[in-house]
Design a protein around this nucleic acid. Sequence first.
DNA 1: AAGATGATTGACCACTCTGGTCAGATATGG
DNA 2: CCATATCTGACCAGAGTGGTCAATCATCTT
Lengths: 222, 222
Amino acid sequence: MDDAFQSLEKEKQERILNAAFKEFSEKGYKQASTNQIAKDAGIGKGTLFYYFGNKETLFNYLINEAFEIAYREYLSRIDFDETDFFNRIEEMSVLKWQVYARYERALSFMAHILMHSENYVLPEDLVKKRQKAEEIWGSLLTRNIDFSKFREDIPKETSLKFIRWTIEGFRAELEQRFKQADFQDYTNENLKPFYEEFYEHLDHLKKIYYKNSKGEQSKDVE
Amino acid sequence: MDDAFQSLEKEKQERILNAAFKEFSEKGYKQASTNQIAKDAGIGKGTLFYYFGNKETLFNYLINEAFEIAYREYLSRIDFDETDFFNRIEEMSVLKWQVYARYERALSFMAHILMHSENYVLPEDLVKKRQKAEEIWGSLLTRNIDFSKFREDIPKETSLKFIRWTIEGFRAELEQRFKQADFQDYTNENLKPFYEEFYEHLDHLKKIYYKNSKGEQSKDVE
DNA sequence: AAGATGATTGACCACTCTGGTCAGATATGG
DNA sequence: CCATATCTGACCAGAGTGGTCAATCATCTT
């Protein structure tokens, strides 16, 4: 059959895709080994080519799949009716962690190809998808946000960048910590302390970048 | 001679080291190709092995060299008598850019091996150097800093992290912009607009994270 | 039970690239 | 002119590459 791969049990599909996501995002297109992918997925090398024909087709399939996931599970779910900046960013972060827990490999793969986009020529039908995704992506933190709450003595765009960078820094630190501690089990239960840390940070950021309408700032000396 | 490499003109040494730095930091130890390094350095493959004997020795030489540079050109030059946090961070950043302009490849290489330290076993004499470097590194933004200037309503460690993350975010954005614009010429003249942007950011951060002794914050509405 | 068809495999292919060697060429200095 | 140090790329065995295919296995139909 032509789409033998589609007819597989979902679990097997996922095993194969994850193996491929992993290999490609770790080594890039050229250095990635189809042998390794097959071995990692627990199937024969011939089977892999039976499904996808050749390396390039597999790669394009992965790109499409990753974009599909990112859109379906993340971008399309943002609630643009939420106008408070910090509520929006909280919603985004929580959603992102959930997606990451479930589709870590796919998202790492996407991050890789976005980061090294110079090296890859996307097939035409994917270019549009990419543009649309980037458009939404870029508007996540700005569309329909109530910026009147922000302090006035710093340009709004600057505040926005600073907040984004701060949260990205926190995310990177978490990733580091997870890696170091061999963190595996991304259940909500296990993540609880990190969520609390995150909310604490959000509170501080709000204190910093929102207007201080109550004038609390001046209780200086301890 | 045994240290034929040391007797070369500095320029040739540097060409070879840079080629090696580049290859190793892009591909990692195993995937890096000695052929590529030789070609990139503009010397015969035999010559490379004449100098270093084998791949591993070359690699260890590079690690040592990178640490040497980081210490000599950066860590040892920080002025710990400067107690103002933002002056300290400004000094560090400027110094880092200078070093980066001159030793980009070596620093990227060091970043790579620090990032993937799980994969590499350092030779014993380097472990000590690494520890010492990390010790200094970790104290750059804390030792002999006057923390009484910071606002009191946010934990000092939190403020510190936030500032670090913000500046790291700015640095990452600059790197991105440079890459996109094929920026090559790291002369002070060319960097000027970016310096100005940086100082502006520093001012804003100071306004944000230092105590607001003059109570300026409340000039709200535009 | 026999046959047919699709799914799966790994040995195999031609080819590229690997780290490393070494006989010979070239440069240097006495 | 020799001796010694420097430098080279053809060459090596081995590993790994993407891709093929005859053979096996599994499932279903008749």
